[in-house]
Each structure stands twice: as structure tokens, then as C-alpha cells.
Amino acid sequence: MSIDAAEVAKIAHLARLAVTEADGETHARNLSSILAFVERLSEVDTSGVEPLAHPLEMTQRLRRDVVSEVDQRERFQALAPATADGHYLVPRVIE
């Protein structure tokens, strides 16, 4: 599977990553060689093999659906680049 710069631009958009045109070429080359490397998996006969999602095959614990966290909004928002009145600020989305 070979990836070209146009494909890189598409993937970068899906991943919400700004990639310059010059970097796009390098990424295309590297992604192609990584995909060529993992391509050998397609030759493996996996018929009847269940996919393994968790190494110990455990299911995740559930907890009761009750509030477990105390409100620390101010403490957490102190980390944010831009906030006002308890809200996170982003560029205008709705005109």
C-alpha cells in the first residue's frame, strides 16, 4: 500500500493535524514504508482466530452510576489556555 501526499493530507485532516506541503512528502514516504512493513500480516492465515483486545481477556470493572468526583472546576480550568466565567473559550462556532 503506497500513500501519496494527497492521501497524507486527507489522513492529516481526519487526525486534525496541520502538516505542511514539504512535510507531506516526507510523511508520504515514511507512512508508505511503515504500511509496507505491516503488510506482511495480510499473508497470515487467521481464519477462525478470535481477535484479542485485552492481554488478560478481562472485562472492565463497572461501578455504580453515582457521582464520584468533587467539583474542581476552577482548579482544572486554571490549566486551560483561555477561559471566562467557568467556560472554555474557542473561536466563534455559531455566527
Binding site: I11, T26, N30, L35
Partner: peptide, 22 residues
């Protein structure tokens, strides 16, 4: 989103995010 992530992440991290996204 795009520029914050594009500037904040280095090349190897971007590469892996893109491989994974693909």
C-alpha cells in the same frame, strides 16, 4: 485544533497518529 496539534506534536508522534488514523 490543527495548528495546536501540528505545532505541539513532533514528527514521530504525528507519524504514529496518522498511521493509527489510517
Amino acid at each position: 485544533y490543527k495548528r495546536s496539534r501540528g505545532e505541539g506534536f513532533g514528527e514521530e508522534v504525528k507519524r504514529r497518529i496518522m498511521v493509527g488514523t489510517y
